[in-house]
Design a protein around this nucleic acid. Structure first.
Lengths: 188, 188, 188, 188
DNA sequence: ACGTAAGCGAGACGGTACGTCGCGTCTTACC
DNA sequence: GGTAAGACGCGACGTACCGTCTCGCTTACGT
């Protein structure tokens, strides 16, 4: 974003930013991120359009800020692997459903994929076998694991969270292991 | 698209549509689908802008037509599962790399996911075990398989196709089996 | 017009031109000349648009042809002064009302003025006094007479012809005489 | 116009509107109102095209504003009858010459006629005789007077104002009287 | 009467102007 | 200093007409 929302700021500033962010989230859920305009956001937030630009470069900048807040919330925790992520997604399910769907944004999707991959990579790294010549490439496995995680998340979102995050985390770890595991070994 | 390009049409029409489609593909690769404008396309194609609108509603309509052509080419073949798809992607690697990346389009990505899912579903359906009570839901497995396929494809595209489509298909079938397979059983 | 409709032409040609002219007149009355488009005319005439251009340069050309036909009808007669003109206008009152009104055309109005002036000039020329130094300029009187004729015609058209052409001609000659007459003389 | 240019507005607004109006007048004189495009006007005024639409609906709206300004200037004065109007026209002779000519606009001509008629009606109303049965209808006389006034103005404009407005006003009043006067009486 | 050249329908195409929308920058005045 | 209000330049959008053109079909005309 244009300027870090350093600790304690002017009260009006905090109020404005909050109004904008709320409007942004609401509207993203309602009509999709792609179709959003800055005017939409400011009208909903009852803030002048030029004020928006004093705080953000554009709607992507606002999204960025939101993601950073999310990141700080989820990163600084203890639970292992994707559990925190899932818990967080559970709360903002509507938002994620839209952002990852056809009315969302490819930048966001990309970023979310990378984020997912990072989390899964740390989890499954130790489980991966030493690279063998004729076996599946490690990178391929990792990519598949990360995307399988995405797939599970997508399924979870579409079904309106049919199970607890813990349950899904467990299932996911099984799937990860299956992919990372001793594939191709049996052939020996 | 606005009108089906029924069989053999006016020669000029075929020429115009082809020029537009080529320009569209080139420019998508060069600067991304999201940043494309109709004017960009028509200038590259050396076609008047108003002529564009005589054939397509907008750039999405043009994309749609392209996808339909692709679909017809890949659907009517014999090879099983995703092999045809991979072969096809191999030829348009640049295009897919962009469209599925951050400069692509979420609608396209969605559609591609669904297409992928359909192909994998048919392949792995028979491999799926009967639904057990405490095992992973079938839909979850399917979603993971489809996304793992996507992940493999993404890896393949990013690495600039480090292996043959046949090789990747083989690896993918292994991964599919691993996900579809008797997970949770070992716990017994 | 593009080509003189020389005497006897191809039957199809005559038919097409007639259809176009009729449609043109109807539509001019209905929605005004200014708002007319070539497409309007050809659709009403049930003639292909490109056929229009085979016969006329544009809608002005079509108008031109119509005026020429009118001219030939009214010019080659015996009655003196503006009587013939008024009789003719009486028949096409709707058309003239529109063409001379706010939805008409300034070119047409100009032409009509000149035509009117020519007719009145011949009538009142002999009645004009010899140019005196301090009297009204002859040209001024003529212009006023011509425009007064226009005004009478406009009044006639607006009121939906409240009197016979002959009656109006008589009144007009009185007015012409009054303007042309011995103005300023009384001062002597 | 879209919005009244209430009293004192934003300086930039006044500047923009003025530039547009000047460009409009210049170009109208140069190439005629009919052939004017919005782009012509904005390029001459060195103003962005979309800014034009922020102030006016179209070129007719701009014309309207100009006419209103003119009206306010000429209406609120003391001199009797058409003298003010003639004085005003004298200053914008080029503009009026074009607007009333073949490259002008029929709406404008209509409006100008009505305006002229209004002014002459007030002047000559008292001079008109009581309506007699067989005499010229009052409305006809009025229309002729108004148009004669137009004719005089046209003559004045075409000749590049060969006399003073006062002189023309005098002549016009003579003509008006002649038309309004005791016509038809002599026949008795 | 009949073959043929024309008139014609259909519609693609390049052009130009339109009026609208969203963006990001800016200035001014208020509080 | 933050904000409201809103003018402005910029540039893409999709639409509407224009006038030109090519391509076959059909139809009235000339021999």
């Amino acid at each position: 974003m244009t300027q870090k929302p350093e600790a304690s700021e002017d009260l009006r500033v905090r109020r404005t930013r909050k109004l904008l962010q709320q409007a942004f989230i609401e509207l993203t859920v309602e009509k999709g991120f792609a179709a959003l305009t800055v005017r939409d956001i400011t009208e909903r937030a009852m803030v002048n359009r030029s004020t928006f630009y004093r705080h953000y470069l554009d709607k992507y900048d606002l999204l960025e800020e939101y993601l950073n807040e999310i990141y700080e919330l989820t990163a600084s925790q203890d639970a292992p692997g994707p559990l925190n992520l899932l818990k967080h997604i559970q709360q903002r399910a509507d938002f994620y459903r839209v952002m990852l769907g056809p009315k969302g944004d490819p930048f966001f999707a990309q970023r979310f994929r990378q984020n997912t991959e990072k989390r899964f990579r740390s989890v499954s790294a130790q489980a991966l076998p030493e690279p063998e010549t004729d076996a599946l490439p490690v990178d391929l496995r990792l990519s598949c694991i990360a995307y399988a995680g995405l797939g599970a998340t997508a399924w979870w979102l579409e079904q309106e969270q049919p199970c607890s995050p813990e349950q899904l985390t467990d299932w996911l770890s099984q799937i990860s292991s299956a992919i990372a595991g001793p594939l191709h070994k049996p052939k020996r």
